[in-house]
Design a protein around this nucleic acid. Structure first.
Lengths: 209, 209, 209, 209
DNA sequence: TATGAATGAGCATTCATTCAT
DNA sequence: CATGAATGAATGCTCATTCAT
């Protein structure tokens, strides 16, 4: 039975995306068939092809959809606001968040892992890869803005090597992200606040030579 | 077809493993068919089934094979030797190595990425996953031994939280590993020695409370 | 969406038929989807279903439409007129026409070829086939009328076997049609007028025994 | 159950080709699925893919197979033999054959009609088309050789325009072929020998100017 | 030991058709 | 009159696996 209104159509689309996200996350891109997605979302395979041109097109759209609809990411974006008076605290707060169940949920999901598979070329296609590279760049730029904000507010040295500091933070955060997934951060948890302080302190050493 | 000697048989087996490694790395596990491997290694599909029970069995054997035959890993193992008088320097040297083309080659290969895919459940099977978890545990234990060596030699505090320190190092190293793959460590390179010093310095703060 | 007038509706119908003709001709019946036709004619798939019951119904209607609207066919029909005083010359003129770019255009089109496919049972359905058989019969009858006209005007023998003469002409004309399509009539062109004379001369031998 | 010997394998291949010929003939290329062929020949779909790379590859191989295995075609080829003392009679005999049930069986089959569909671009692919064009050329060349044989033996004028005569014969034969398929040669049958004589007589007029 | 032949389940995709709006 | 949304059956094709030789 064909859906009627535009609204219902959009709901169908969203539903397909949500189900695809769940299944791709659980079983990976290659191991999830469109049949699975159709069954899981209660529509016909044809319906998926009405909304998306192909399985890979579904993936590209999914990457975009997930990016826009992830709470944590919005939060991350806010911390670079020029009106923020204490960006360093905000930054620390944000980094601390990664450990939290709430935010780490997304970063630790196997969906993200699937995205890594795409980045590295054994899932999806060039379109999806390009989209992901773009999003990664956006994240790095955002991180740079946060750091520049800290410099502007006098919380980090004027002659800080912005790019190096950004990369250092990225290294730390992705290390946490990675080891948490490997269940190798349990003993670290109680030192976490202290560690984040140290990492931020380290940033100050990365000055222009 | 001619009977082959045991030696020749072993060579066939090794050849299949090498080719599988290359193809799995390039195209991923799911996207590589046994046909591909057969064609690439110049044997018939049937031959693969003589040496391995199934595609997944091939994968499990491959994980083991690769682990044993990777140069960098051997190097890593040596640094925990009790006879080592300056383990902290060796540790630093090892960590610095990750940045080097030579050692990072393996960690950064898409083969490792495939392994991550297995760890996260969208490639391979439980056997492969168990094998990998075991290897990861071995690495962490190795890292712990190195750190304990440093404590024994008086280079790290007696009351160090060994597990936390191990995890901290793992976080840092995997962060480097990850961001390097994302091409996000260029600006960081010139500070690298300095950063490693700081990270090791940080370890000293992770003491038993 | 706006109600359209009957005129506009007829234009839509005609437009669909024209586009179907073009696409069926180029790609064949099976390889042309209703989607293609819809896209090409700028209407929705649903619109096609408003004008035609099914894809096959569209085909049947198309056969009729094309027959009525082909210039060359009209010309052919005129040559049987009882008021024609020199039908044999007209016949010769018509046969000569087949070689001409103008008339052979239609007979040589892949659209006609598609029709042959229908005749032979691997496109369309029984309705379309019946329609085509009827049209073929009309052509043969027309040819018979032309020949009878020649007999009536004393240009062919009184005891001519009309059916045999008709078939003989049809054999010749379809042979030309076929080989022209195969690009096998180039050397024949300069003898063409002569050959047509001979063929017509041959007709005179097909008398009742 | 896998076939064992090479002989059995060749039989399977031949069987698939025979069944494909029958089904393509009855239903046309597009309307025959590989499932149909598999079912009809009692093998699995996979077996077809073992012997042929794709559906189109099956078609190309089929064209070749049919060409080689058609009795009438062999007969046709023999008539150009230089040792033949009365090639004109042989030619006439051959042309008469087309009308016969035996030889016309193949030419009138819907399989041949399918081939026409391929020639005209709405079945199969470029490979199949090229193969057919090649075969058509071979036929025309063969016809030319027969005619040259007649010239050599003094049965046709020395200054005959060989190409034009070849084309004229082709026109006649394909016209017969075509109209017979359309069931439009019944009345012509009793004049057939006479008509063939006339056609051959006509050839003598196609001399170099 | 190793191969070639064959199987069969599963997959992405296409498409004629339906129908509420 | 016409559209956009949805269905579901069918299709070409891939591939892990089996097995007689």
């Amino acid at each position: 039975m064909p859906r009627k209104t535009q609204e219902e159509s959009q709901e169908t689309r969203k539903n397909i995306l949500e189900c695809a996200k769940r299944l791709f996350s659980k079983r990976g891109y290659e191991r999830t068939s469109l049949s699975d997605i159709a069954k899981y979302s209660g529509v016909s395979r044809g319906a998926i092809y009405w909304h998306f041109e192909s399985k890979e097109d579904l993936l590209v759209n999914l990457v975009e959809y997930v990016d826009v609809n992830t709470e944590g990411v919005r939060y991350f974006f806010e911390s670079a606001s020029p009106s923020e008076q204490d960006p360093l605290s905000k930054l620390k707060a944000f980094v601390l968040c990664i450990f939290s169940e709430e935010l780490s949920e997304f970063f630790n999901s196997s969906f993200v892992n699937m995205l890594i598979g795409i980045s590295n070329g054994f899932s999806g296609n060039e379109d999806a890869r390009a989209k992901l590279a773009e999003l990664d760049k956006q994240r790095m730029d955002q991180l740079s803005k946060i750091i520049m904000n800290c410099v502007a507010k006098g919380q980090l040295p004027k002659n800080l090597n912005i790019r190096a500091a950004t990369e250092h933070l990225a290294v730390f955060m992705s290390g946490i992200f990675f080891q948490t997934r490997m269940k190798n951060t349990d003993a670290l948890k109680k030192y976490y606040s202290q560690i984040v302080d140290m990492e931020i302190e380290q940033l100050k050493l990365l000055v222009q030579s």
